[in-house]
């Protein structure tokens, strides 16, 4: 019996589309993970700080405002600065394939687009967390 996976679901940026973030938060909780949801309109600093304070294993970011190319790299950088580079970051939202490739190359573990089955996200987190633990 492994330790319970702790996940922070974050909504960086200014948009208020929290349907996806909440559905994923519910699905991860129902899958037995401990889920913390930041609420809306968070700055990258607020999210990185919460991730460290809450000692999470994974951070999931939801962005639908088009600011993904700014937000994801900034949060990765802040986590590294805080010595929390081991925390994995995944995400979802309206993110064109080309941008998703660039972000994944820059260190985002995985980006899930519209239509994703939440069980795929659960499997992904379990698999990746098992590798790093």
């Amino acid at each position: 019996m492994g330790k319970t996976i702790r996940v922070l679901i974050g909504k960086p940026g200014l948009d208020g589309h929290d349907r996806g973030a909440k559905v994923v938060a519910n699905a991860l909780r129902d899958a037995g993970m401990e889920v913390i949801y930041t609420g809306l309109h968070q700055t990258p600093e607020m999210i990185a700080e919460a991730a460290v304070q809450e000692d999470v294993d994974v951070v999931g970011l939801s962005i639908l405002s088009g600011a993904h190319m700014t937000m994801f790299p900034r949060i990765l950088e802040l986590l590294r600065e805080k010595g929390a580079g081991h925390i994995k970051v995944f995400g979802g939202g309206i993110i064109p394939a080309e941008d998703a490739e660039r972000l994944e190359a820059a260190g985002v573990a995985r980006l899930f687009g519209p239509g994703t089955d939440t069980r795929d996200i659960v499997d992904f987190i379990r698999k990746n967390f098992a590798q790093s633990a």
Partner: peptide
Amino acid sequence: GYDSDHRRAEGEVGRC
């Protein structure tokens, strides 16, 4: 309610 040169506008100007 943020101007385009506000810090919170970074990465979001003209996007959606």
